[in-house]
């Protein structure tokens, strides 16, 4: 049996869906492979979960594959997960049947107060046990596996017992979850903590990567003149992040890749250009992976024939 190794156009490059672009998308039917929404934006308000957000999302869902990205589950809360919020996430997932569901390696709620930011966790055995338990709880509630995203971080903990990549590898192994590799987050953390982002990628459990995120970041100057990168999602993807992405997909092959642009929302054509750039790099990676696989296949057959003839 020969596997079909021709380049396939799968779930390639997508865009984070913003209300500002609903009409452009429905009227222009752009050639974007998929869209991703923040789950919390489709949970309604008060007693209602209707209105324009759902009217438009249902129309877009009818034409494009969808991914659901949670931003408020607070998987790293020492308090435990909020069962009510998990049920609401399950309702969004049941309603829209997304291809991918993801959340963050972070916490954002404490004692019932929602802090509206993705806050960092110390990478210790205790945190790992907590996060594994919570991911398991989420996967059980949703009846499917989820992807967990690596964070952008601004400071580190003295108490850490393992690296972020080791933490994520263990998390994936113990919980069975996949990973969402945010390349911008890797770059932001690398600059902020002074490590080489390529080393991070080399240590990352790449076999678990089910999705890639790309976004823009800002640089601020702190007291003392030190520069710090902030994960802002308010501008185009930076060139060094594109280079890291290119190196990543050349190594692991194409993966569903999303452009996130959540503030200072651009016009649709501007966002579509970013998606197109990601699509081109994925296509290159697809062709590269195809050529490599044909090559290794040919070498493999030659080897088999030699063995059979006893040469």
């Amino acid at each position: 049996m020969t596997a079909d190794r021709r380049p396939q156009r799968g779930l390639g490059a997508g865009a984070g869906l913003k209300p500002e672009h609903y009409r452009d998308i429905l009227e222009g039917r752009p050639g974007v492979d998929w869209f991703e929404v923040h789950a919390e934006n489709y949970m309604g308000a008060g007693n209602g979960a209707g209105g324009p957000p759902h009217v438009f999302l249902e129309r877009i869902r009818a034409r494009y594959p969808l991914a659901v990205h949670g931003v408020g589950l607070s998987i790293g809360s020492a308090d435990g997960l909020a069962p009510g919020h998990l049920a609401r996430l399950a309702a969004v997932v049941a309603r829209y049947q997304p291809l991918l569901v993801s959340e963050h390696l972070a916490w954002s709620t404490h004692a019932g107060v929602f802090l509206n930011d993705l806050l960092p966790l110390p990478y210790t055995d205790a945190t790992l046990a907590l996060v594994v338990r919570h991911v398991d709880q989420v996967q059980t509630a949703l009846g499917r596996s989820i992807l967990i995203e690596n964070p952008s971080t601004y400071f580190r903990f003295e108490t850490e017992q393992m690296t972020e990549t080791a933490f994520l590898r263990e998390l994936a192994r113990r919980s069975g979850c996949g990973l969402l590799l945010d390349v911008n987050n890797v770059f932001v953390s690398a600059v902020n903590h002074g490590f080489d982002p390529l080393d991070y990628l080399a240590d990352f459990p790449l076999e678990s990567v089910g999705e890639i995120h790309l976004a823009g970041h800002a640089a601020i100057e702190m007291a003392g003149g030190e520069a710090l990168l902030i994960d802002t999602h308010d501008r185009p993807v930076a060139d060094p992040v594109w280079e890291l992405f290119q190196a990543l997909v050349a190594r692991i092959g194409p993966r569903p890749t999303l452009i996130e642009w959540d503030a200072e929302i651009p016009t649709w054509p501007q966002l579509a250009d970013e998606v197109e750039r990601a699509a081109r790099l994925l296509q290159e990676a697809r062709e590269w992976t195809y050529r490599s696989s044909v090559l290794s296949h040919a070498v493999g057959e030659e080897g088999t024939r030699c063995a059979a003839t006893g040469r």
Binding site: A78, D79, H110, L115, D117, L119, A126, Y154, F155
Partner: peptide, 26 residues
């Protein structure tokens, strides 16, 4: 250690909301 994490999250959460909280830049 999990109790440590809860205690830290409690202190950190409070300092995010309080107007006059003093925190390191990062």
């Amino acid at each position: 250690e999990a109790n440590d994490l809860r205690a830290w999250q409690s202190v950190f959460a409070a300092s995010l909301l309080r107007a006059g909280a003093i925190m390191p830049d990062r």
